[in-house]
């Protein structure tokens, strides 16, 4: 099991009261799943992803990710978990503008203190997965939105993580680019058995998912395993 949440509650202070973003979430996610958290804005998708990604902690209950209790992790342990085992893909790509494509992908490996040759091999392989070896020297502002998101996928995958968390990865992309991105991620999911968790309300994404967890007002209202489009 990659992820397990038990009676997970997350509340945010709003003035003198609290807003409950997640209310008693109990889910488990296995290795190799291609799963989506689906729901309208404010349903708690991103909050749940942040907790699974150890960027946030639950108010009550707990989440176990790769056997680690998120609530009990120190700042350093949580940073190590993210660095070694979890890849992130964001809606707005979040690439470093002053770095080249190659340097952006290389970044996570720098933190792992890998040698230059190990980094080069891994980065070039990751860029090959996403079909961007020819753009290695380009800066993010010199490539298209679709290419930027492919760089973000390469950055998430370069360290061979067990889990990739993608928050609305296609929200800023057109249909063709969305398809390309999802196709790439699905292939990586199959080839490397990497678990992907998406937060989305994009129907294009849903067509690719193996499992969809529907959230509404911070609660799971449906959890279904579905048959996806063949690649």
């Amino acid at each position: 099991m990659i992820v397990e949440t038990k009676h997970l509650i997350k509340k945010f202070p709003v003035g003198k009261s609290f807003f409950t973003a997640l209310n008693d979430i109990n889910i488990h996610i296995d290795k190799g799943e291609f799963l989506g958290l689906v729901g309208p804005s404010g349903s708690g998708k991103t909050t749940l992803l942040n907790i699974i990604g150890s960027l946030d902690v639950p108010t009550e209950g707990n989440a176990h990710v790769l056997g680690k209790s998120i609530k009990d992790l120190s700042a350093k342990e949580s940073a190590i978990l993210r660095n070694r085992h979890i890849g992130f893909i964001f809606q707005t790509y979040n690439l470093f503008p002053v770095y080249s494509v190659y340097e952006n992908v290389e970044f996570a490996l720098l933190l792992q203190k890998k040698t230059a040759s190990e980094r080069k091999t891994a980065v070039m392989q990751a860029l090959e997965w996403v079909g961007l070896t020819d753009k290695a020297k380009a800066r993010p502002n010199a490539i298209s939105g679709g290419e930027c998101q492919r760089v973000a996928i390469a950055r998430a995958m370069v360290k061979n993580p067990e889990l990739v968390i993608a928050d609305e990865p296609t929200a800023n992309l057109d249909k063709a680019n969305s398809f390309h991105i999802l196709d790439t991620m699905k292939k990586l999911n199959k080839e490397l058995s990497t678990t992907f968790i998406f937060a989305t309300h994009d129907e294009k994404v849903m067509k690719f998912l193996d499992r969809i967890i529907y959230l509404e007002d911070g609660k799971v209202i449906n959890d279904e395993t579905i048959k996806t489009e063949s690649l």
């Binding site: 960027l55 700042a75 350093k76 940073a79 993210r82 660095n83 707005t92 979040n94 996570a108 933190l111």
Partner: peptide
């Protein structure tokens, strides 16, 4: 700030 958040997401501590 996006860059700072991304640094943290990619495995850096705030202190780093």
């Amino acid at each position: 700030q996006k860059e700072i958040g991304t640094y943290i997401a990619l495995g850096m501590t705030r202190q780093r």
